[in-house]
Design a protein around this nucleic acid. Sequence first.
DNA 1: ATGTCGTGGACGCCACGA
Length: 271
Amino acid sequence: MSGERSGQALRIATWNVNSVTARLPRLNEWLELVEPDVLCLQETKTARFPSDHAEALGYEIAHHGDGRWNGVAILSRVGLEDVSLGFAEQPGYAPEDDETLLAVPKVEARAVGATCGGLRIWSLYVPNGRSLDSPHFPYKLDWLDRFRDVVAGEPRPLVVTGDFNIAPTDDDVWDIKAFRGSTHVTPDERARLSALLELGLTDVVPRPMKYDKPFTYYDYRAGMFHKNMGMRIDLVYASTGITVQDAWIDRDARKGTGPSDHCPVVVDLEL
DNA sequence: ATGTCGTGGACGCCACGA
């Protein structure tokens, strides 16, 4: 499944776990099975990362989480330095339906950066956008605009990875016709991906492992996984100069008891 | 595709987000 990596390779991965607390048994067994050097997590959904097992396996952990929603982390066994919890000018979100309080934007726990074994890496949980007419949609676009400015100033080699909540092309959803009028596929969102590519990043498209499309997310409902009705929204953007040995999606992590609705994406690279 | 999860507050269900 995972193939062989050369001695110089750095194995990085990204995984939206949909609660690290609920996923802890799956996460712990996965760390021992796949042995990533650096693992970026999204939607930890907790203020306190359950770190005991990962630390026993030799990982250092940078976690940015503040409770029930969001939460991102970087686990590294090749060093963890210069941790950034969020980023400069990161926009907040003000709930529009709160008439009792001043609408103070809340900066959410959606980004963490660190330097691991000579690689600068960011774990992102990009705002979902909800619907085209929701205030969350311009928030999503603004958030990505501001993060672009961060990428422009970051050192190389650089990897920006996580749950982008954007399908880069029409082929990255099971049926583009089902997405008419929806978020995740609009030109506005894809323009933000293009803006990252223009800064010298490359979309590392993983091998699909099964079927023809490398989907990373399947809704829990309606048997979407078994019908292969998924989306590629968990992305790995690597700076030019990084050599990719292999990139694959771990569909097995979406099977069995108590899976996340997202699959991990694993990339073996040389800096 | 709308069939399921996860969280936490006030519970043995509901609201919310995805």
